[in-house]
Amino acid sequence: MPGVTPTMGRRRLGGVLKALREKASLTNDQARKKSGVSTGKLSRLETGHNVVYAKDVRALLDAYDAPPEVRHKVLQLAALAEEHGWWEEFDDVLPAGLDLYLSIEQAAASLLVFGTSVVHGLLQTEDYTRAWIRAADPGSPNAELERLVSLRMKRQELLSRETDPLSLWAIFDEAVLRRRIGAADTMRTQVEHLLAMSERPNITIQILPFEAGAHAAASGPFTLVEFAEPTDPEIGYVDCAAGNVYPEKPAQVRRMKTKFHHLTSSALTPEKSLLFIRKIAKELA
């Protein structure tokens, strides 16, 4: 079904089905002949772009001679792939393509983030979020803006979930703290919020000061997503004017990870970063 947006569940299932097909040494056409699943549908299933039907998955498992224990796990994964995400309640305002990122973020164990102009959404206060969205789209109706604010606040529950809260390591360029978003008290509250969030064991914040000069990620902000499951490879995320990009080839991910490690060395240590943030908070008082 062309046009179906991939979710993390579908991507996971697709990766497993592709691995099983390759293990069976079958081409797409050979898999079609053995399973009765068209090559087009198979291709879309393997890339996460198809609605998942159990009968198709069973037919493919038969074609790949999957053992019982593998069949059970894959069929469980197929059922999970079609579960609705919490973000679907915001379909009326959800930006195009964001549902894929939210499903990836929901499944993540940790995020490595480099930001250059704005506080990461998971660390924003309501007023800061409201001011940022209003600046980005001055003509949006108030009701729509408030729905987007609620969406962002809902995302933040990942950081405090009871089981395996999301780990976040954020490196912010000094410009993130210097750029005034909203009124003075909005910015001050946001900076104080960063201090409070940094006290959580699953959150690390570093500041890359202007005096650090040129650095490894001068090309712009990015996110690296890591998963608990060893079968889920790391994936990158870059939000740009042309749309969301997901670098996932091993070489691409390695380059992004290398950049992040260089940034951790160029930035102030977490301890010194907190002192720097406190200094900014006093300046805003």
Rank of each mutant, 00 (worst) to 15 (best):
E126S: 05
S38W: 13
A241T: 14
R21C: 03
V176N: 03
R130W: 04
P68M: 06
V176T: 03
L20A: 08
P141M: 05
Q124W: 14
G220D: 07
A81V: 05
L75G: 09
V52F: 07
L224A: 06
R255K: 15
D99I: 08
L112M: 05
L94C: 07
I104V: 03
D239I: 04
K23T: 06
L275F: 02
E271I: 10
N50H: 13
D91G: 13
L102V: 02
A19P: 03
R134S: 08
G9F: 00
L145F: 13
F260E: 02
W86K: 08
I235Q: 00
S35V: 02
G36T: 05
M197I: 05
D56K: 07
R179Q: 12
D62Q: 08
G14C: 08
L158A: 02
S43K: 03
L159I: 11
G236A: 15
E105N: 09
R152V: 09
A241C: 12
A135S: 13
I280Q: 11
S266L: 11
S140G: 09
Q206P: 06
E226K: 02
V176M: 06
A184Y: 05
H84L: 14
R255N: 15
A251V: 15
A216P: 09
H262C: 12
V245F: 15
L122S: 04
W169S: 02
P141R: 01
D232F: 04
D99T: 10
A218L: 15
P68V: 02
I277N: 00
K259F: 15
L102C: 12
S167F: 09
T223C: 06
L158D: 02
A183T: 11
F90C: 12
A184I: 15
H262P: 03
E226M: 00
K18T: 08
P270H: 04
A63W: 00
R10F: 08
Y53R: 13
A183R: 12
P2K: 00
L177P: 00
G36I: 10
G139R: 03
D91S: 08
